[in-house]
């Protein structure tokens, strides 16, 4: 790419970024705390998975997943994959057809728009980093682990 081409591309990226920050209302209005997980989904041709915190906290206290099941407080930081789920880890502790519906209902979790980055939707970090588009999994330091 020529120097001129690079300048144009950089300018376009800058304009896009400014528009993203200053533009009208945020386009995504999903629930506070909805976690999008896209560690492997896009690459595997699946829609990214959405974890609705609100739905689960109506049914279980935080402790059940974050202590008993050992799920870390970090979006995308648990390296969850379908094999582990089928083996009863993470989501699979309940989503096994016994406590909750089981894994053949792929589309109920894998329901995000393709390309949605890993994030906690509406989180402080997302708001600071550009209106709900920053991949918090990559940029967010999340406490000592």
């Amino acid at each position: 790419m020529s120097a001129r081409g690079k300048t144009v591309a950089a300018g376009a990226a800058l304009v896009a970024g400014v528009m993203m920050l200053c533009g009208g209302e945020r386009e995504a209005r999903a629930e506070y705390g909805d976690v999008v997980m896209n560690n492997y989904s896009d690459a595997a041709g699946m829609r990214p998975a959405v974890f609705p915190h609100w739905f689960h906290r109506v049914r279980f206290r935080c402790k059940v997943c974050h202590s008993d099941l050992g799920i870390k407080f970090k979006a995308g930081g648990n390296e969850i994959n379908m094999l582990k789920i089928i083996d009863g880890q993470f989501c699979g502790a309940c989503h096994n057809g016994s406590v909750a519906w089981s894994v053949e209902n792929c589309d109920l979790c894998h329901s995000a728009k393709p390309g949605t980055p890993t994030q906690v939707h509406d989180s402080t970090i997302n708001l600071l980093g550009g209106a709900g588009t920053a991949p918090t999994g990559a940029s967010a330091p999340a406490g000592k682990k």
Partner: peptide
């Protein structure tokens, strides 16, 4: 609290989205 199909994160084209409970 929009329904999943309109919340900007869920894909309205996904058959699963339609089955999710509206907050």
């Amino acid at each position: 609290n929009p329904p999943p199909a309109e919340d900007g994160i869920h894909d309205p084209e996904s058959p699963g989205t339609a089955l999710l409970q509206a907050p």
